[in-house]
Design a protein around this nucleic acid. Structure first.
Lengths: 123, 123
DNA sequence: CTGCATCCATAATGATACTG
DNA sequence: CAGTATCATTATGGATGCAG
């Protein structure tokens, strides 16, 4: 199976890259990937780190990222079970870029806050 | 009004950067910002470019980006009206980073497709 | 401990029709 | 052209119960 010669374009309505982008750039997808950048983490560890995520959404997000080959999930069938999540090489590359985006956005927040205040003022 | 001394953290549940990140990294937020990278565009131009977006979502997304100070909206009250959208400096910085993310993701799609096929195969 | 399954409430999204 | 309004559909979130 080879996809090498295909062109992927997120601007195209039915490109297969669209759902992948939706998963990666989703609210919890971004935070999950970035939270895994400093190494392996367990489920509830991630849950605490990604403040506000529900069990259900974190589980769903991690499975989607695993399916996309960005997150690796390893299970140790001990009692109690130990499930660990980490990034694949592709996942790490994307997480790095997401971190840059987050840093840029957080650095822009002062300007953004001022713009929002001005905008809301005007109505 | 000064926000300079505040720390913004998207990982915190109630940080004001969270909704901004949601807007920027939303399905249509990303594509709208990147579509505006090569200059000024009109509403229906963007609508054609961002394949699959509904009128409502494009309108909503552009308004949110305008409120965040990332997109500039200029109206010429002629008949028919001419409304133009472009990026602000902050918008341009973020759009540049989003473009890098898109390029990275599109370049990773061959690997991702293989991973998805393997994953789906296994169930 | 790590989750999946289910039910329910609410929010986001989309299709369509209509207006200045 | 550039939207808004309305309604239908879908996604998301919270709570709870249960299993390996």
């Amino acid at each position: 199976m080879s996809f090498e010669e295909l062109v992927f374009d997120v601007f195209a309505r039915n490109c297969t890259s669209r759902p992948v982008m939706d998963t990666v750039a989703s609210r919890w997808g971004i935070l999950s990937l970035v939270a895994l950048q400093d190494g392996t983490h367990r489920f509830n560890e991630l849950r605490r780190r990604v403040d506000g995520v529900s069990e259900k959404m974190l589980s769903q997000t991690l499975h989607a990222l695993e399916r996309d080959g960005l997150v690796l999930r390893t299970v140790q069938s001990t009692i109690p079970p130990r499930v660990e999540y980490s990034l694949t090489d592709a996942g790490r590359r994307i997480a790095t870029k997401l971190t840059e985006l987050i840093e840029l956005l957080e650095a822009s927040m002062p300007d953004i806050s001022v713009a929002q205040a001005r905008y809301d003022e005007a109505r």
